[in-house]
Write a protein that binds this DNA or RNA. Structure first.
Lengths: 203, 203
DNA sequence: TTAATATATGAAGCATTGTTCATCTTTTGG
DNA sequence: CCAAAAGATGAACAATGCTTCATATATTAA
């Protein structure tokens, strides 16, 4: 762990270099030496902060998921007490934005996890998100969900999954916007359907 | 390309061995020598049919997506003329089943694509699926979609994305079933919402 | 039967890359 | 100002793994 200021700068440079190389991707793949070069440090320095290459990639993804979780939590607490449709809109927009504002980075990270056991990361992230979104939905001023856990799981999985799939298909911005609008519509329709069924009672 | 019967058997064995190793995953990663060993042939033989390691993985995914596309196309043509809700149910069930009947294989393939430019594969697959599902939805006996392309894109992306995300989160079978049911509900609600809006006119 | 073709072999070459360590420089605290 | 700790260096090592090729075996067709 870094103690001095320059050490922290070094670690940041290494992370940045890793993302850059991961983004430039193409033929040349990620190499500890290449990462160090691009970061302007020597390989030895890299190994002063990361025991091995895997640890570097792991830490990178940990960082990213930490930031993403924070954003989602912020959105959720900001929406406390709002109407359910507003919450949905906020959640969809936040996630969509986070994944598409820097597409190459998102893509690079998706690929980097491949040779990594990231189940622990995913689980931690999922738990944080579930906690935040569940609390948000529970506070909705216009709905009272009989099976909150089920509704939450459904919405989160559908929204996150849809965004990822849209991403993977490489939709152009026109189709992407259209899809985003339809996703809003769909989630709202789902809520209304719940209202009308015996599963949920409106207040 | 294989000309004699034994050659075909060899290629099959190589594919099978690749999947086995990819599944066993864990620490030891995919090696041309290991693949050949497990397939009961020599490395040289492997290189008689695949110019390099990438080509092997590419071909494996091509095979898988080909089979998956066929299944979806079969479902779509079987549902021609049916009601839209029935179509949705069939499409969801088919995809869900295809992805979960052999989870390790699905997981292995998801990971194997990482070091591969599979955009061409994905695009081909997407086009085939879109053609099939669009034709199916167009034939629905109980709906006439004003913007068929949009509805189709939405449904396919949401369904496929949700399944993948559910997979990645490693839901237990209980949650998975629950989610599948809610996905049905959600897609149906979406269709009904379209009916009521000016976007689509019921027959 | 035999020549031509197809298929299979696997040791060896070659390149790449993850990792170490002895050494050097910089910073810190007293 | 100086010793001790922190940080940085990069050539060298070791291992691994992709790929080739000269050779051998099996199949086919005439």
């Amino acid at each position: 762990m870094p103690r001095q200021a320059r050490a922290e700068a070094t670690v940041d440079a290494i992370f940045e270099a890793t993302i850059q190389l991961l983004t430039r991707a193409g033929a040349e793949d990620l190499t500890t030496t290449r990462v160090a070069d691009r970061a302007g440090v020597s390989v030895g320095t890299l190994y002063q902060y990361f025991p091995n290459k895997q640890a570097l990639i792991y830490a990178l993804n940990e960082r990213y998921l930490e930031a993403l979780a924070k954003r989602i939590e912020a959105t959720c607490s900001a929406q406390a007490g709002q109407t359910a449709p507003n919450m949905l809109k906020a959640l969809i927009d936040t996630y969509w934005q986070a994944k598409t504002e820097r597409p190459e980075v998102t893509r690079a990270l998706y690929r980097s996890v491949a040779d990594l056991d990231n189940s622990a990361l995913i689980e931690t992230f999922a738990r944080r998100v579930d906690t935040a979104t569940t609390a948000m939905f529970a506070s909705a001023c216009d709905a009272d969900f009989a099976d909150l856990a089920s509704v939450n799981l459904t919405l989160v999985t559908v929204i996150f999954g849809t965004v990822r799939n849209a991403f993977e298909r490489g939709l152009d911005s026109h189709d992407a916007e259209k899809l985003q609008g339809q996703l809003h519509l769909m989630c709202d329709a789902y809520l209304k359907a719940l209202d009308r069924s015996s599963i949920a009672q409106p207040l």
